[in-house]
């Protein structure tokens, strides 16, 4: 029952139930066609991966507004919580799937090491119907997601580094994105000296 689920999961369910929805196939096919077009234009797998990340970044910069306005997620106290909110609320709200968030601690990291987490997407709507042909086997097809997370977090004062670690299209059993915090950007308020 909904009442017994963890709170963020419920928040995500509520957010998803409220938004207008479209057939996921339309989205998946559109994304596929976009990737194909980028590949055709740049004729380079590496470049396409970079371009996808850039597009994702630009989307993330905009999508954060939608998220903050509609998800009702509140303020996160630490980076760990940020990971939970992204995984359970944001992914649920926009893609309709729940994602697992795993916090990683380097075995012998210094005490002041920057925190990081991995997003584990088992049920990834982006990769439906997709198969990477031989010459594109290194393509980071889901790099768009990395960009979205990076762009969105940057808008709320967190500069992060994201990387696509695993992808079902590469033969892994799930898609995995690492998100590590690089810098907390504090907003500078200036006095109105008029």
């Amino acid at each position: 029952m909904a009442a017994q689920r963890p709170p963020y999961q419920r928040l995500g369910d509520v957010a998803f139930s409220k938004v207008e929805k479209v057939n996921a196939e339309l989205f998946t096919l559109t994304y596929g066609a976009v990737v194909v077009q980028l590949l055709k234009d740049s004729e380079d797998v590496e470049q396409t991966s970079i371009q996808l990340e850039k597009m994702g970044y630009n989307i993330g910069v905009r999508i954060i507004d939608e998220f903050l306005a509609k998800a009702n997620a509140g303020t996160c106290t630490d980076f760990k919580e940020t990971g939970e909110v992204i995984a359970k609320v944001a992914f649920r709200m926009f893609l309709g799937v729940t994602v697992d968030c795993r916090h990683v601690v380097e075995p012998n990291a210094p005490a002041d090491a920057m925190p990081a987490f991995h997003l584990i997407i088992v049920d990834n709507p982006l990769v439906d119907f997709v198969e990477l042909p031989e010459h594109c086997s290194t393509l980071a097809y889901c790099n768009l997601l990395c960009g979205v997370v990076r762009g969105a977090l940057e808008m709320v004062g967190m500069r992060v580094e994201t990387k696509l670690l695993k992808d079902t299209l590469w033969g892994d059993e799930h898609t995995e994105i690492s998100v590590s915090l690089k810098e907390l950007v504090h907003e500078q308020y200036r006095d109105d000296d008029e």
């Binding site: 479209v22 057939n23 926009f94 709507p125």
Partner: peptide
């Protein structure tokens, strides 16, 4: 049928 938020597609477009 699997669904995603309509805004997700909007942002992509």
């Amino acid at each position: 049928q699997r669904e995603v938020a309509a805004t997700t597609l909007d942002f992509l477009l």
